[in-house]
Simulated scan of single mutants.
Amino acid sequence: MRLRLLVTLTAVVAVLATGFGAGDSLAAPARKSVDMPIIDTGSTAGEQLAPNSIFLWQNPGARYIVVLGAQMGKFGQTPQILNQRLNTASKLGKQHPFNRMIVSGGNTWWLPVSEAQFMNVGLLRRGVPPWQMVNEGKSTSTVQNASYTVGMLKAMGANGALIVTNGFHMPRAIKDFRDAAAKQGARIEFRPAYA
């Protein structure tokens, strides 16, 4: 157990020490207090909220943000497509601090850390608090992302979720999530959130 913890901590430290990639963002505003998160509604006075924001704000306790993983580099490098997903997810997470976020992704080759754990670090670095994140760290494909995550969503009483992934991946991801929900008898509405 100690060895596994040591290896995991070493991997997290290695990720933190590698610095930011080209798609990473340091745009999180400085906080004066750690008691209250900064809430960005995503609109300025007079503008309407985006449809995804309305969807999340309608029922924060039962609407989730689901972020799909991508295969990490051999030494834990974050691919550009995952940086894009994390940037989109962090923006949504900061705009909607009462909606939980499920990060989904398992195997990272020979590394003892799942994609979900790497994504946790990436989201923390982008200003998303750890209490907002829930891990699904077993999946190795989009079909498994959908199956395991739908099971979690159903158990948590969800009635909707935004799926955060890239445009080329979105049609397959939405179909897999809807199929998994139908198979598990879960009444959950899935909407795309393009990275």
Score class of each variant (00 low, 15 high):
residue 1 M to D: 08
residue 3 L to F: 14
residue 4 R to F: 13
residue 11 A to K: 09
residue 11 A to T: 14
residue 18 T to Y: 15
residue 23 G to W: 04
residue 25 S to V: 04
residue 29 P to Y: 08
residue 37 P to Y: 10
residue 37 P to W: 15
residue 41 T to C: 02
residue 48 Q to A: 10
residue 49 L to F: 12
residue 52 N to A: 05
residue 53 S to G: 14
residue 54 I to D: 04
residue 57 W to D: 10
residue 59 N to R: 12
residue 62 A to W: 05
residue 65 I to C: 06
residue 68 L to W: 09
residue 71 Q to F: 02
residue 74 K to A: 11
residue 75 F to L: 06
residue 78 T to K: 09
residue 83 N to C: 00
residue 85 R to L: 08
residue 88 T to Q: 07
residue 88 T to F: 06
residue 89 A to G: 10
residue 90 S to D: 06
residue 92 L to S: 01
residue 93 G to C: 01
residue 95 Q to G: 01
residue 97 P to C: 00
residue 97 P to Y: 00
residue 98 F to Q: 13
residue 100 R to D: 00
residue 103 V to Y: 11
residue 103 V to F: 11
residue 104 S to F: 14
residue 108 T to G: 04
residue 112 P to G: 05
residue 113 V to L: 10
residue 114 S to Q: 03
residue 115 E to G: 06
residue 118 F to Y: 15
residue 120 N to I: 10
residue 121 V to Q: 09
residue 124 L to W: 15
residue 124 L to R: 14
residue 126 R to P: 00
residue 129 P to H: 10
residue 130 P to S: 08
residue 134 V to L: 10
residue 136 E to G: 07
residue 137 G to A: 14
residue 141 S to T: 14
residue 143 V to I: 15
residue 146 A to K: 09
residue 148 Y to N: 14
residue 149 T to R: 07
residue 150 V to Y: 15
residue 151 G to V: 03
residue 153 L to F: 14
residue 161 A to I: 03
residue 163 I to F: 14
residue 163 I to T: 13
residue 166 N to W: 02
residue 167 G to T: 02
residue 168 F to M: 13
residue 168 F to E: 05
residue 171 P to W: 07
residue 172 R to D: 00
residue 175 K to L: 02
residue 176 D to M: 04
residue 177 F to M: 08
residue 178 R to I: 06
residue 187 R to N: 10
residue 191 R to F: 08
residue 193 A to D: 07
